[in-house]
């Protein structure tokens, strides 16, 4: 058996049947055999400084410059808004354990007098913007909670979120007692509970 195989191998290749003459194939350009370091750099530079690359880079730059210029142009440097600081009356205007909605419609803040946050009677001002998507929650005094109509987030009187999709408590804005005995809200200051900013004395007025 083995001998027969060997014999067959030694006998040489079988004669191939004659095929009809094939048309000559067009010669393809021979590919570069090996990439040397030098030719790699040449290749890189030929790609980066080729008219192709230059043209696309120029086009992209022009487009980018125009887009950035348009975006910057559309970013106004001035907005017309009411001043961020305003007086909201005396402490005596705010009875204990109540949420005042006096400035909600005009200025978007509640003034809250409660001792539920840390046991101390405090007066603070909550921003009437839901921390979920910025709708205006309403104060439901019967259920003692702020409830957002957009996606149902609920907050305790302290401003802490407890239901719905809101990810964090309502924000406090600055509230100070001026020398004239009047309270002043400063909406340019914001205090976030989750960052520990509610301990900042500018965020509340302690009641005696």
């Amino acid at each position: 058996m083995v001998a027969a195989v060997k014999e067959a191998q030694q006998a040489g290749k079988p004669v191939a049947p004659k095929l009809p003459a094939q048309p000559a194939k067009p010669k393809l350009p021979v590919k570069e055999q090996k990439v040397t370091r030098r030719s790699f750099w040449q290749m890189l530079s030929s790609v980066t400084i080729s008219p192709f690359a230059v043209a696309w880079t120029v086009m992209a730059t022009i487009g980018g410059v125009w887009s950035l210029a348009a975006a910057r142009f559309l970013m106004p440097n001035m907005v017309r808004e009411l001043p961020s600081k305003f007086k909201v009356g005396a402490i005596s205007d705010y009875p204990p354990n109540a949420v005042s909605e006096k400035y909600t419609a005009s200025r978007g803040v509640w003034i809250v007098n409660t001792d539920q946050y840390n046991g101390q009677p405090l007066l603070y001002s909550l921003l009437a913007i839901c921390t979920h998507l910025g709708c205006t929650p309403s104060w439901l005094s019967g259920e003692q909670k702020f409830k957002c109509p957009c996606h149902g987030s609920g907050f305790y009187i302290t401003g802490i979120n407890f239901e719905g999709p809101a990810p964090r408590p309502l924000e406090r804005v600055g509230l100070t007692l001026g020398a004239d005995g009047l309270l002043e809200v400063d909406k340019s200051l914001k205090f976030q509970e989750e960052l520990g900013q509610w301990s900042d004395p500018k965020s509340y007025v302690e009641l005696g």
Binding site: A105, C135, H151, G152, P165
Partner: peptide
């Protein structure tokens, strides 16, 4: 700007996205 209707809905073709906001 101060009277939020309850419920406040986006235009109807975006309500699928608004529903995702619940989750």
């Amino acid at each position: 700007a101060v009277k939020t209707p309850n419920p406040s809905k986006a235009p109807w073709y975006f309500l699928g996205l608004q529903e995702m906001l619940v989750y």
